[in-house]
Design a protein around this nucleic acid. Structure first.
Length: 208
DNA sequence: CCAGCGATCATCTGCGGATG
DNA sequence: CATCCGCAGATGATCGCTGG
């Protein structure tokens, strides 16, 4: 169960991992900058005050954070330092055998530094071909997070069973069919049966 | 180089409006 | 009536500029 302190710690951590102060986070979410002031977390007679679910929904939306990710920020021991580096995989080395069933890399790849995203749910993919230019050029690094939800129109990485890793835009996902739009050419649509997909994960960041 | 000054920003306190 | 949130004003920290 989340306590009053847990929820406020989560708000502080969410601001921190996004490089914001609590007031900056409130502003980004369209709230009054004082909404998350420490002085407003308890009433004058010392009773706890809670942020509204609407305010929480707004800061999650403003930071593209899921409720599950927010809850994970509350857990003890998830310091920013613990998120400082993440494994980095080369696109041409991204074979199906090197990932687990959830899409996390199994081999020990080199690591790159990262300061504002939760490294426990991330790995980097270095683009070392021109297949996705000009959207992703040779030398770019994209960050993939199997730990977050994938929605329509998200840029994603898809690993077909027995195939080669694909990057694209998730066009549609039903129980029978999953369609991926090409990054270079939106007219180039690939369809997959869910049973033929090893894993699908969202691209959350790109360095270029 | 350093002190003084003003601008800017974050935060705090107190109050009142909106809502249930 | 209790609670959450926005507004206004005050305060303190930081930064950049200027002049000695």
């Amino acid at each position: 169960m989340l306590s009053h302190a847990d929820v406020w710690r989560g708000v502080d951590r969410l601001a921190e991992v996004n490089g914001l102060s609590p007031s900056g986070l409130a502003r980004r979410a369209g709230l009054d900058p004082t909404t998350f002031n420490k002085s407003k977390r308890n009433t004058r007679d010392g009773r706890p005050r809670w942020p509204s679910t609407e305010s929480l929904a707004k800061i999650l939306d403003a930071t593209q954070t899921t409720l599950g990710e927010f809850v994970s920020l509350v857990q003890p021991g998830t310091s920013v330092a613990a998120r400082a580096t993440i494994p980095c995989v080369r696109l041409s080395a991204a074979a199906v055998s090197q990932f687990d069933g959830a899409g996390f890399p199994q081999a020990s790849f080199e690591r790159i530094e990262l300061s504002h995203l939760d490294a426990r749910h991330l790995y980097a993919l270095e683009i070392d071909r021109d297949d996705y230019a000009p959207v992703y050029r040779n030398g770019d690094t994209v960050l993939i997070s199997p730990g977050v939800g994938v929605r329509r129109h998200d840029r994603v990485a898809l690993m077909p069973k027995g195939g080669e890793l694909r990057l694209g835009v998730l066009q549609r996902r039903t129980a029978e069919r999953l369609t991926l739009m090409g990054l270079k050419d939106p007219e180039e649509v690939s369809a997959f049966a869910p049973a033929d997909v090893s894993w699908l994960a969202r691209i959350v960041w790109v360095s270029q």
